[in-house]
Design a binder for these strands. Structure first.
Lengths: 337, 337
DNA sequence: CTGTTAGCGCATTCAC
DNA sequence: GTGAATGCGCTAACAG
């Protein structure tokens, strides 16, 4: 801890602590000469204000909390990147919490944040969460902004992507590629993020006059082994020629199963996956991805919450929808949507 | 902010604030009955202690700072995952800062952290950094633990991986695969992390009686375009049959260049890269990776700093070295080192 | 076992 | 323009 305090600065400058405090915050009440003296000494002695004392007095922490299911995830780490970027530019600090998709851990974090540790919270909710009580409670005291995964029935600022549309387009893309039997790996079943993706898939099928077949939709959850065997069943029995995965985590099992079953990708089975592994289609031309603008989502979410904190005019119910890209790669070409 | 304070609890319970404070921290001085009354009311009223007030008084923040070059990076995000995990289990909060390999931003963060915002700092230094002044200054006031990228000439707790050995093994692996002309993409030139990787490569060559050829070593830096053209030159003129990339970021340009030049991977050129993209060899069998135990590094770093904070006996000069895996994938097999 | 008192460092109100 | 006084919420020393 830098031991130097306002009091000590005041002492050395023959000023009162109040004057030094005001000078440091560039108050109009202080003469330019005094300000300069204060700034010079502060710089010389490496003065750094004590954040706890400052917060205790001013009720401003200059800190944001970010709650995500996982940090080691291509989407979330890119989003956090954007959030940190904006925060740094505005002198804000960023606290990170991960829930591992566990709504109890999530609730505990949320509860602990009402104590004035942060000025605002950016959250992408766990896939299990359906109780919004903690959130409404928290939102009474500080601004909360949801990104990517929001609670359906909650009024709050939300940043999402065009999940429905991008799943629709991806499905149509597979149809245009000649797929007749397209399956869907359904994850985030509890959230509108997941449901929208499913609905985009279903609607694309029906509007292209393809019979909607429930057995082609696999419900996926946290149990990796179960997911694996369900997908394996699907590929063995139903033999789809196209597949859409609603989360990146399921791509690898798909590849493993195809190898096991001697299914050739993409000749026998074309795969499209929601994924922010931007290098995926380049390392492996047979994979097409729906890539969310994760960094921009982070930027947008952080910018919005800072506006809320600065009492700028923001619709506290605003929903921002950004667009995903469909990234495909043949031998050389790279397409974007 | 949860408005309820110790004072209010005290008032409602006909106790003094001091007693309530002691009861909340489960002090041995307080009767079980009183403790229970306090806990019950605290729970009922959703009391959450004000962290600023607590810190101001106790000089403990229960917060760690993590400084990394990039969050959206497979290695660092996995390391942060481990750090967050340990921190949560011990009731610590985690602040994230990214330097984008800029030592000025890094220095500014370090400077701002002497003010008592955190109890300790976990850092992986920027590739530009060679001035250790800020670090020694900071380390006087709070513990600093370096992970993966440390400053050479600084006495501190460090967690690293066996960079020399893993580069050595990877090079020997390529030799065993029949490569005669192995090139090396040299990055992190300023850090021992990078230098050790280079030396492992060089020593593996010489101890296998392969002439050491400087033109096969490409100096890479932040300038992506320059890296690209240098690598392209290498592949065009020198036509190596093996390549080791000392960072993950250079793999994609390599693939792009090979495609451009009609070089077949792995038939014409075998590539091994330091990379924590764990899915890489699975999505693309032609890539072999040296994968660092990022999560374990995070776990270890966090555990160590918590020990330091709790004045446990820790050698303040301790260096922990964890081991990377060489992950290769033929048609079906997966090897580990 | 519990209460009283004091002060962490800062920002704000009120004086002059 | 500047200073003196006050209190944010908590914990620790001292007292009993």
């Amino acid at each position: 801890m830098s031991n130097i305090t306002i009091k000590e600065l005041a002492l050395k400058l023959n000023l009162s602590a109040a004057t030094v405090s005001r000078a440091l915050s560039d108050s109009y009440q202080i003469s330019t000469a005094t300000k300069q003296r204060v700034w010079d000494l502060a710089k010389k002695l490496n003065y750094e204000p004590n954040p706890s004392a400052s917060t205790l007095r001013s009720h401003k922490t200059k800190t944001l909390a970010v709650i995500v299911p996982e940090i080691a995830n291509n989407f979330f780490s890119q989003a956090i990147n954007g959030i940190e970027e904006v925060s740094r530019q505005h002198g804000y600090h960023v606290l990170i919490y991960q829930t591992h998709e566990n709504s109890e851990i999530e609730a505990a974090f949320i509860k602990s944040l009402v104590s004035g540790r942060v000025d605002g919270v950016l959250i992408s909710v766990s896939s299990e969460t359906n109780n919004k009580d903690h959130f409404t409670e928290l939102n009474k005291t500080i601004p909360v902004v949801f990104f990517d995964r929001a609670l359906d029935n909650m009024e709050a600022v939300k940043i999402t992507t065009n999940d429905y549309e991008s799943a629709y387009n991806a499905t149509e893309h597979l149809i245009e590629c000649g797929c007749k039997k397209i399956s869907f790996l359904f994850a985030l079943n509890n959230l509108s993020t997941g449901k929208n993706r499913l609905n985009g898939y279903i609607d694309a099928l029906t509007s292209n006059n393809i019979a909607y077949d429930e057995t082609l939709i696999i419900n996926c959850d946290k149990d990796e082994n179960q997911n694996y065997s369900h997908i394996k069943d699907l590929l063995t029995k139903n033999k789809p020629d196209g597949l859409i995965s609603s989360i990146e985590e399921l791509v690898l099992p798909c590849y493993a199963i195809c190898e096991e079953l001697n299914i050739n990708i993409p000749d026998d089975l074309k795969i499209v996956s929601f994924s922010n592994l931007k290098t995926a289609p380049f390392l492996n031309p047979s994979l097409t991805t729906i890539t969310q603008p994760a960094f921009e989502i982070g930027i947008t979410a952080a910018t919005l919450i800072l506006k809320l904190l600065n009492k700028k005019q923001v619709d506290t119910n605003e929903v921002v929808v950004l667009k995903s890209d469909l990234i495909e790669r043949g031998s050389t070409a790279v397409k974007k949507n």
